[in-house]
């Protein structure tokens, strides 16, 4: 069973307890100035955004088929069976393809560091392996962020929509976006109104590059035979021409 987070924007009161808990779990500084920054960055891995009177939360979406993990040339990013997409800073060479590839613009880079790392939420992988909930969901005083098995959370999200059809926009963000994510959103209004990207493809992104990459063995094998053959023919022709030229 893969772990997920359900964030219900209609319940969120914007108290930013999740931000504080997240900073504490990572050992990152957290103060009023940082709390006022409404965007995720290398020193703030989750952020509450204000959209009029509504709130939204940004964090890594932990895609079912993450683009970041597929593009990482050194395999520093991995989708774990447990659900979180985890990062190994010791492998990372800093190509920043993950930043480029992420449809949600989640990964952040330590731009001003001499030995920089990529930073992003890891859905409290360590805590979850011990069976504990994520720091953010444990800290949420109103249950707006809830942690659990994905199937159960999807079912619960559907239930909430069915129970109060007037209070919810009737869709779950993350159910099919980029082939499904492990972070799911509920909202009272269409998702773009709370700052979520709604133009992302509905299918998994890694397929887009794999379609080409899987041709590599074919190109190599067919290419070798073809080029070798052409060389053999043209070279033979030249030799014959030379020999005939000599005979004359």
């Amino acid at each position: 069973m893969s772990k997920s987070i359900l964030y219900d924007s209609t319940l969120c009161i914007g108290c930013k307890a999740c931000e504080g808990a997240c900073a504490e779990r990572w050992g990152l500084p957290y103060n009023d100035r940082i709390a006022a920054e409404e965007k995720i960055s290398a020193h703030k891995l989750t952020a509450i955004e204000t959209h009029g009177e509504r709130f939204s939360r940004r964090l890594c979406m932990h895609c079912e088929e993450p683009a970041c993990a597929s593009v990482c040339p050194v395999g520093a990013l991995q989708k774990t069976a447990l659900g979180p997409v985890v990062y190994d800073p010791d492998k990372c060479m800093g190509c920043r393809y993950c930043l480029q590839a992420c449809a949600f613009q989640v990964p952040s880079y330590e731009w001003n560091s001499r030995l920089p790392r990529m930073r992003k939420c890891d859905m409290c992988y360590e805590r979850q392996t011990r069976g504990e909930p994520t720091a953010c969901s444990a800290a949420c005083p109103v249950g707006a962020t809830k942690c659990g098995d994905r199937d159960a959370l999807v079912a619960e999200a559907r239930q909430r929509i069915a129970a109060k059809p007037g209070a919810y926009y009737p869709k779950i963000y993350g159910l099919n976006e980029v082939g499904g994510t492990s972070v799911l959103y509920l909202s009272a209004v269409p998702f773009e109104q709370i700052g979520l990207r709604t133009n992302v493809p509905q299918g998994p992104l890694p397929a887009l590059t794999w379609r080409v990459l899987e041709l590599v063995p074919d190109v190599v094998s067919t290419g070798s035979v073809l080029l070798g053959g052409i060389w053999w023919i043209t070279n033979r022709r030249a030799e014959v021409a030379k020999a005939e030229g000599k005979r004359k």
């Binding site: 395999g75 520093a76 794999w210 080409v212 590599v216």
Partner: peptide
Amino acid sequence: MWNPHSVMFE
């Protein structure tokens, strides 16, 4: 450190 699914790796 290999990741054959990555274009950058190739």
